[in-house]
Design a protein around this nucleic acid. Structure first.
Length: 261
DNA sequence: ATGGTGGCGCGGCCA
């Protein structure tokens, strides 16, 4: 018996709902964390999700951002803000599902190095790290997943030379990402061998997906207790090949189910 | 090529 957890930036749940419902039916994840739902909570398609046999919790806003957690089991202990961070942008959702703690994050994009948004991104990551420290102390089975908008290493970039120092790849962003790992998390994807040039995001422009000009910026970070039972972590490129796709593909991690304590 | 594509929503922002 295994359980399966996934993260997918859908770039508008309104547009992508049919793809999400198809994907739930085909892949049967136990937990799916969505980013960029771009929906106010009153418009969340709770009924469609329920008809697919999933529960949904969400924190959304009009036009931008928005996160949700779809799960087989009910979610409790919801948190919709990083403690101490006053932010109208709906970018985090914490929930307890079964015997795991889930933190769904949509890290700010940062736009360009030295922009105001880049400064906001680094400050946001700083607050996230402080929050993770307290969550890690509380929950030995913690999953932090979502769109981190950071390619952690050169091997996560299709053209590392061209991207050197650019937003999503800058030293300060990579240092911030490394700091999250150093708190006691592991990148599930890197627990396993993979082909070269596996990415999770491809620009809509310039036929980037067809040419595999992408970045790996969507991640599933897990505590040692979960790493010990993690059986695999992959990017599912199939939804990116559909008509009218998100610019991101889902990242999926599978775990052996351990006896509940 | 200071571009390109897509979502939101109808001009311009954001990614």
């Amino acid at each position: 018996m295994q359980f399966k957890v996934a993260a997918w930036n859908v770039n508008s749940l309104n547009v992508r709902l049919p793809q999400v419902l198809d994907w739930l039916r085909e892949r049967q994840p136990d937990i799916l964390a969505l980013q960029e739902t771009k929906l106010i909570d009153a418009d969340f398609p709770t009924l469609d999700i329920a008809n697919a046999d999933y529960q949904a919790v969400f924190s959304g806003q009009k036009t931008y951002n928005g996160v949700a957690i779809l799960s087989r089991l009910p979610a409790s202990e919801l948190v919709t803000d990083i403690p101490g961070l006053k932010d109208p942008q709906r970018r985090v959702l914490g929930a307890t599902v079964g015997d795991v703690r889930v933190l769904n994050v949509y890290v700010p994009n940062g736009q360009a190095v030295s922009s105001d948004k880049y400064t906001y991104k680094l400050a946001w990551l700083d607050k996230l790290a402080a929050w993770l420290e307290t969550e890690l102390a509380r929950y030995p089975r913690l999953i932090v997943l979502g769109d981190f908008n950071i390619a952690p290493e050169d091997r996560d970039v299709h053209d590392p030379v061209a991207w050197t120092g650019q937003v999503l790849c800058s030293v300060a962003e990579r240092t911030a990402f490394r700091r999250l790992l150093d708190l006691g998390l592991q990148d599930a994807f890197r627990l396993f061998p993979h082909d070269e040039k596996v990415f999770s995001w491809w620009d809509y422009r310039g036929a980037a997906f067809r040419r595999n000009l992408g970045l790996r910026i969507d991640h599933i970070l897990i505590t040692p207790a979960l790493a010990a039972v993690c059986k695999g972590c992959e990017v599912d490129k199939a939804p990116r090949q559909l008509e009218r796709p998100s610019d991101h593909a889902p990242v999926v991690a599978e775990f052996n189910r351990t006896p509940e304590l």
